[in-house]
Design a binder for these strands. Structure first.
Lengths: 117, 117
DNA sequence: CCGCATCCAGTTCGATACTG
DNA sequence: CAGTATCGAACTGGATGCGG
């Protein structure tokens, strides 16, 4: 039963790690979900993601932008307006999130019976 | 376009968080994958997950056991032998991991062109 | 062989205040 | 409005050594 090496297994989980990292942290998920409902401005996201600080929002948006999940568009008005939107690629996360959500819901039920939260 | 409240969105991502937490951290994934190939004993897992310390392995296994993903079976021999295995429920994670892996691979390609790693 | 206790380092995250 | 700077708390994960 050792037809596989653990090295291979290790390699095969690297992409999984990548995917997890993209969703990782307290804020990326709510930000992405928020943007799935439409383009938003900085302070609008801040309002819709309760508890996040400007610093965190700024950092997470930059992360997401680096990963090409979020697009940042600056309007040269005064005061400056910045609009964030999910890229098509960002929207492709929806499937992933759905699968996670489906499994997570089963897990909740299993772990807590039928607790309200 | 405000037919939804952010409260609802927040609630809808809770199960996603649950699922992410189950896979989260440096070690849970390699441990799960290792156990997908068959039942293992503590030190065998330790060998197959390079870099993990006993403390971490112990903690992660307990976590996974709490979540009913891993089953722990103690053989009353001397010295004691403990065998870990994935529960059926644990195996149900395979689908989730596959989806993450698929997305993660696309992401790797997108982010790095075609790097070897 | 299996696992825990202790101590320690790195990173993440939050609070507050400030800029163009 | 859209961020940045700084500080510090909290959490995660690692090294080492011990105990059943």
């Amino acid at each position: 039963m050792n037809g596989h090496t653990l090295g291979e297994c290790t390699k095969s989980i690297l992409p999984v790690r990548d995917a997890l990292e993209v969703l990782n942290g307290k804020w990326k998920l709510p930000i992405i979900v928020s943007l799935m409902f439409g383009n938003k401005r900085f302070s609008q996201i801040a309002r819709e993601v309760p508890g996040i600080t400007d610093k965190m929002l700024s950092k997470e948006l930059r992360d997401l932008e680096c990963n090409e999940l979020v697009k940042r568009k600056v309007y040269d008005s005064i005061p400056v307006v910045v609009e964030y939107s999910l890229t098509d690629y960002g929207h492709s996360l929806k499937v992933v999130i759905e699968v996670l959500r489906a499994w997570g819901m089963k897990h909740r039920e299993r772990m807590m019976g039928e607790v309200t939260v």
